[in-house]
């Protein structure tokens, strides 16, 4: 096995291991909960019989490690247990909402990523120009705004004053793609603005960092035009950091939807998670939390692997 394959495999293994650790910790955390879960959920008035029945139903009467393994094998088979609040299968609750969240995040990503990388490149290319400085101030401001501020501002302008888009982003299975794109435009735009700001700054920093390298001066002294210096000499070496920036922001998008979903009452996972946390519906919190954590870890692992592949020192290791 080559060094490269070993590196990639070890990154994958590390990602999976992290996911297990996170799931186990989550489980232990709930385990350490002060007081009795059944009691907390059913309230003080519950009779000992109902409590016992409830515990048996949830499997709370078994040893913790058995329950963890049960739960884990359930997860692997696609069985995430039942919601404490509604009694419905968590898998059913998740499926459509998962699709909705991915739709919204994907919508924003498709628009934000190319714009952000291009803006970052241009800002680096025209460093300290008026464009660069105003982009910097704009990005700093956008990063500083809470998502709900941006969201409500957009609602105020585009739905209340102008009436172009609805205030709420309600979609269901009957909504057509065109309608969905229209209805979810404002939540997507909120995400796009925040993500572009972050990504642009990071891309610019990555490129500028590379532009300070001696081989860039060498390229210029070979008579290479400026655009070609950036595209051919700087960009390939800035790929690893840029890939990381993109992964980080995609991960952020999927997570960042939580607040935006709440503002626009969008039926996604974030909304579900917030409700479940408020009602302390642990199976749902666990399942959604694990999904978000898994996506985040997966994206980071993917970014790691892509960075390794983009590094000629590792790709052509002797």
């Amino acid at each position: 096995m080559t060094r490269l394959q070993k590196l990639i495999l070890s990154r994958l293994a590390l990602g999976i291991a992290t996911l297990f650790v996170v799931s186990a910790l989550m489980f232990v955390g709930i385990e350490l909960l002060p007081g009795d879960l059944a009691q907390q959920i059913l309230g003080q008035s519950a009779t000992p019989e109902t409590l016992a029945a409830f515990r048996a139903e949830l499997g709370l009467d078994q040893a913790p490690h058995t329950r963890y393994l049960d739960w884990l094998s359930g997860v692997v088979q696609g069985d995430l247990g039942q919601s404490l609040a509604s009694g419905r299968e968590v898998t059913d609750l998740l499926s459509t909402r998962l699709a909705n969240t991915m739709f919204l995040a994907g919508y924003a990503a498709v628009i934000a990523v190319p714009i952000a990388v291009t803006l970052g490149l241009l800002a680096a290319l025209w460093r300290n120009s008026l464009f660069d400085r105003s982009a910097n101030v704009g990005a700093l401001s956008a990063i500083s705004m809470p998502e709900f501020f941006v969201a409500y501002l957009l609602i105020l302008v585009f739905s209340i004053k102008l009436g172009w888009f609805p205030t709420l982003a309600r979609i269901d299975t009957a909504t057509s793609l065109g309608q969905a794109l229209h209805v979810t435009f404002l939540p997507a735009l909120t995400l796009i603005m925040v993500v572009i700001a972050h990504m642009m700054r990071m891309t610019r920093a990555a490129i500028i960092n590379v532009l300070a390298a001696p081989y860039i001066e060498m390229a210029r002294l070979k008579g290479v035009p400026r655009w070609r210096v950036v595209l051919r000499h700087a960009l390939p070496n800035a790929l690893a950091p840029i890939i990381n920036v993109i992964a980080l922001n995609l991960a952020y998008l999927i997570v960042g939807v939580v607040v935006v979903e709440v503002v626009f009452s969008y039926p996604g996972l974030g909304q579900l998670l917030v409700d479940a946390v408020a009602s302390r519906d642990f199976p749902v919190v666990q399942a959604v939390g694990l999904f978000f954590a898994g996506t985040y870890i997966l994206l980071n692992v993917a970014a790691d692997i892509l960075s390794i592949l983009s590094n000629p020192r590792l790709r052509h290791a002797r």
Binding site: V258, V274, V277, G289, A293
Partner: peptide
């Protein structure tokens, strides 16, 4: 390894 907001929500749920 876990997104901050998600981790916070999970921990606060506990």
């Amino acid at each position: 390894a876990v997104p901050p907001l998600i981790l916070a929500l999970m921990l606060l749920a506990i």
